[in-house]
């Protein structure tokens, strides 16, 4: 079941920049005001902690992160997709985001791990590291 919401071309070009160029480290995606299309809200060249600071406390978002970590055999970088939906969000937003996720997620090729988070603790660097390393 899906909402039929589309993905703006900019979502993909920005993702390509993150994937190929090494400057963009994270992207925050949001639903546009009319609830018709997914758009890029913000991008950043910093790390997970800065990304978390951009996620609102009571509104859903999606994010893509180029997550760097020490694997034991040297430095690794993996792309991580985050569905952010805090429990305090309005039901309409939760519904629209949850039913539109597939449209965005399917258009992003090369995502290594996926995290569904409702609170900031679920995005703790250690938790993210574990999820990315275990790939679940």
């Amino acid at each position: 079941m899906s909402s039929g919401v589309g993905v703006s071309p900019e979502c993909l070009t920005t993702y390509q920049e993150l994937k190929l160029g090494k400057k963009t480290k994270w992207i925050v995606y949001a639903m546009n005001k009319a609830f018709t299309e997914v758009v890029v809200e913000k991008t950043g060249e910093t790390d997970l902690e800065d990304l978390i600071a951009q996620l609102p406390g009571s509104e859903p978002r999606w994010a893509v992160l180029d997550f760097g970590y020490e694997s034991g055999e040297g430095k690794r970088n993996k792309i991580c997709f985050i569905s952010w939906s805090p429990d305090d969000s309005k039901i309409k937003q939760k519904m629209v985001y949850a039913s539109s996720k597939d449209a965005l997620r399917k258009s992003l090729v090369g995502v290594h791990a996926e995290i569904q988070a409702t609170s900031y603790e679920e995005l703790d660097p250690e938790v993210v590291h574990e999820r990315v390393a275990k790939r679940i």
């Binding site: 079941m1 939906s85 969000s89 937003q93 949850a98």
Partner: peptide, 16 residues
């Protein structure tokens, strides 16, 4: 016609 389990999950903001 929509599945009520999926609707309930989505309404809680969750795909899974």
């Amino acid at each position: 016609i929509a599945n009520s389990g999926v609707l309930n999950a989505f309404a809680a903001g969750k795909g899974t």
